[in-house]
Design a protein around this nucleic acid. Structure first.
Lengths: 294, 294
DNA sequence: TTGATTGATACTCTCGAAGTATGAGTGACC
DNA sequence: GGTCACTCATACTTCGAGAGTATCAATCAA
């Protein structure tokens, strides 16, 4: 009946994600027995079984599944509370803009130039971390490729452009002006099919960290990788030995600004307006490439 | 740097709401010194002053103000997590519908009749508790008079009708067909001006608990109180010694269904559809009184 | 059958949170 | 202006929840 503590939720999330008490305990930097007890106590307290354990396997019950979702939300809310309180105390109210490096479509600089209301602090992260950063208060606003449906976030589309594939300039396929996914079968493609727009899932744990575009471009140039990217990124990085070709059957990608729907910050609103204005101008300058959404 | 515990947030909210360590401690059923220490430790942990204390007065700093908002959200999220986990374990998935008693506009019964997908559990509360109930997981969906702007809730309007005043039938004003607020000056009005639509604030602590309409009607009949109410409520409770008269300069009231925007429950969606359908039918039956919003 | 793996139990210990007693600063009132 | 009431902070003590260690028990694989 009594309230849950965030500690209990953190423990639960760790176990629910690892599905293994030992590894979860390790991740939490604690011993396994107290973790087992904490979970047992949590289940007693809720009056609900969260895991089905055999001595060899741990699985989530339906109640556990729903708690995992809600617990993440709650932990984010707690983190956001402390983050924002810390920040509110600082007199220089800088706006924190999260963005995946190199994926801003060349809009970042003009947006910042157009927005001089408050100092802007940049948070450059992997694309999968942009939405969490908005949730837990690390960022006030983010620039991202939309592939999300999150009622707690509002967003405004800036650009919608087709997706392209980066090829070695010498590749036979580079002779064509447009390609289809079927033309690429057998090539080494990034993460799965590359059909996903936003790359919102974290990278597979052991995967080589492809930090920035220059690494990727090197791999593409040597022919050891194909890479999908929105047209606005391709436009921004012309490279002599790389050809960008439109992929007809990939859905177009949309670049958007997003912010917590609960945000009442005038600074955020101003930055969003600046971003929309800059995007419109950019589209007006290059009507042959870009297509605006209001 | 380490994570906040909900205990700390509960303590903080208590002090922030009472602005008095002694009373807050009493409310938390604990002694005052540990509470003072806990708040001090919280401030140290955040590296931020939350309160300005003199020995005679306690006030929130700007950081404290923002933390109060975020802490309430976070505590609600934690409560919702535990509520929903508890409920997910129950095999009979009943939908919980929150509603202020007697304010359903006669729609409650037909809605429940039209919606036979899942058993419905009714949660009857004061109007100020409907939105919190949606937030903390006590209810899945609510029927309420809209006067809220909450990005975490979605809603669908059912009825929009003018607001009326309940008078003794013998009152001279009852001779008129419509009134204006100015006609009522000097009378004893409910909570402030009665101009507020939704009554989303909790009642003043010491106020007589006007639990249900029959009590109110008694007071109105004896001429000791005037009462404002939406037309749909007046229509539902014809009483011989009470006259309802339209108040021209009160904004109309809207009855709506609302639910957490994050809800993906098909049961909620089905109930909302049923409610909208029932409301439409009701409006069609009484076109002279009601005015639908799509 | 045996060994490896993995979660649960028993027991102990420690640190942090709560209580009590008291101090100290501030405003009110005579 | 001195005294009192009020209120938050500090000092010290107590106690229990949570963490650690050692070990058991159950399951699966060979």
């Amino acid at each position: 009946m009594s309230d849950l503590e965030t500690r209990q939720l953190r423990y639960f999330v760790a176990v629910a994600e690892e599905l293994h008490f030992g590894r979860a305990a390790e991740r939490l930097a604690m011993a396994q027995p107290p973790l087992s007890r904490a979970i047992r106590d949590l289940e007693r307290q809720l009056g609900v079984d969260l895991f089905v354990r055999t001595t060899r396997q741990v699985a989530l019950t339906p109640a556990g599944e729903t708690l995992l979702i809600d617990a993440r939300v709650a932990l984010d809310a707690v983190a956001a509370a402390s983050q924002r309180a810390r920040r509110a105390a600082r007199p220089e109210q800088s706006l924190r803009l999260a963005c995946k490096a190199d994926f801003d479509g060349g809009l970042l600089a003009p947006i910042l130039a157009a927005y001089d209301t408050t100092p802007v602090e940049l948070l450059l992260t992997g694309p999968w971390d942009l939405v969490p950063a908005l949730h837990d208060g690390r960022a006030d606003v983010a620039l991202l490729a939309t592939a999300f449906d999150d009622p707690t976030l509002d967003s405004e589309a800036l650009l919608t452009e087709p997706r392209m594939v980066a090829l070695p300039a010498a590749d036979p396929l580079a002779a064509r002006t447009t390609l289809r996914l079927a033309d690429l079968t057998g090539r080494r493609l990034p993460n799965g099919s590359g059909a996903e727009t936003g790359n919102l899932a974290p990278p597979p744990p052991g995967s080589p960290a492809m930090r920035d575009l220059s690494q990727i471009f090197n791999l593409v140039e040597t022919g050891s990788l194909l890479w999908f990217l929105p047209a606005w990124v391709a436009r921004q990085f012309p490279r002599p030995h790389i050809a960008y070709r439109l992929v007809e059957d990939l859905p177009p990608a949309t670049l958007a600004v997003a912010w917590p729907a609960a945000s009442r910050s005038p600074a955020v609103a101003a930055l969003v307006r600046a971003a929309v204005r800059v995007a419109k101008d950019a589209v007006a300058d290059e009507p042959h490439v870009s297509q605006a959404l209001a």
